[in-house]
Computed example of a mutant assay.
Amino acid sequence: MALAIFDLDETLIHGDCSSLWSEHMARLQWVDAESFVKKDHELMAAYARGELAMEEYMAFTLEPMAGRTPEEVAYDVEPWVEDVIEPLIYSAATRCIAAHRQAGDRILIISASGVHLVQPIAERIGVEEVLAIDLQVLNGVYSGQTQGTLTYREGKVKRLHDWLDAEGENLEGAWFYSDSRNDLPLLGLVDKPQAVNPDPVLREHAEKHGWPIHQWQ
C-alpha cells in the first residue's frame, strides 16, 4: 500500500473552489458582488503566476465569514457543493481514485483552499482524508483568520510531514497529482509525481524530468 495524494483545484475539479465560493458568497449577498469578485479574480491571477501571498488571499476571502458559526456556513456550503462543484469533478479523476483504491492505496487530498470547502468536496468525491487550510474559531464563530501552517507551497510539505509522523506513514512509493507550479516542492518529494492539466511552468518541468502528464476532462 502506498499513498496516493491529490491536489484539489484544477486537478480533481475543473475550477478553483475558493474562487467559486467567493462568487457564491456574492449570490448569498454576504459581500458586494462586483467589487469582491473582481478582487478575488485579481488575487487568483496572481496565484496562477506564482506570486500570491496566501495569507492575503485567505484574509480577504474569510472576512465575510467572520462572526458566522461553522454550522451556518456549512448549511450553505452543502448545496453549493452539490449544485456547483459536483458537475465540475473530472470523470478521469474519479476513475484514477477508484484505481488507487482498488490497488489498496491510501488516498489523501491536500489543498491550498479552506477546510470548510475541501472537506465536503472530498466527501462528495469519496475521499475521507484531507489536509487543507484550517480556520480559526473563537467563541463558536469564525474569526476570519486562519490557524496553523497554511497548506500552500512549502507549507504543504510541512503539513504532510506532520501528518506522516502522526499517522506512522511514509512517502515510499507515493504518488502526487497536481496541476500547479506552486506544488513543485511536494511533487519533487514523491516517488511518482504526476502532472495533471499542468500550467506552463509545471508542464516544462514535467517534460524536462520525464514526469507523466495527464489531460483530464
Rank of each mutant, 00 (worst) to 15 (best):
A45E: 13
E78F: 04
V37E: 09
W175M: 00
W30I: 03
S113V: 07
Q119C: 03
L131I: 15
R101N: 01
G114C: 08
A99Y: 07
P193D: 04
D199K: 05
L135H: 03
H41K: 13
W216M: 09
S180L: 08
E86Q: 14
G168M: 11
Y177S: 10
P200H: 12
L135M: 15
D191R: 05
D16E: 13
E129C: 11
L150A: 01
K158A: 09
P79N: 09
E123W: 05
R27E: 14
G173K: 09
I97D: 06
D134T: 08
M25R: 01
G155R: 08
S180N: 07
A122D: 05
L171A: 13
K38N: 08
V84R: 15
T146Q: 11
P185F: 13
R203P: 01
G67L: 03
A45W: 04
S178E: 02
A45R: 11
C96M: 10
I5V: 14
T94P: 03
A2R: 13
H214E: 13
M25D: 02
E10G: 00
G67T: 03
H214Q: 12
R101Y: 03
G104C: 00
E56P: 02
P120N: 13
A122V: 04
Q147R: 15
D16H: 09
W80T: 02
K39L: 10
G140E: 03
D162G: 00
S178W: 04
I97C: 05
A46L: 15
L164F: 08
Y47L: 15
E82V: 08
E10A: 10
R159D: 10
T69K: 14
V118N: 06
L171I: 12
V201D: 14
A59S: 06
D162T: 02
C96S: 10
I133Y: 04
L131E: 14
G50M: 12
M1G: 11
V118K: 07
L108K: 00
A2E: 04
R68Q: 12
H161Q: 12
S18L: 07
V201A: 15
Y47A: 14
G15E: 12
G67P: 07
H209C: 07
F36L: 06
L108E: 00
E129W: 11
I97G: 05
G155M: 10
P193I: 01
S180P: 10
A4Y: 07
H116L: 14
A122E: 05
D179P: 14
M25A: 01
H214G: 01
A166Q: 08
F176C: 05
I133F: 04
A112M: 09
L189E: 15
M44L: 05
P120Y: 14
L164C: 10
M1W: 07
I89C: 12
K208A: 15
I89W: 13
A46C: 12
L189P: 02
W211P: 03
R27W: 05
P200W: 12
K158F: 05
I89G: 14
G140I: 01
E51V: 10
W175H: 11
A174D: 14
V137W: 05
L187G: 01
G173H: 12
I213S: 06
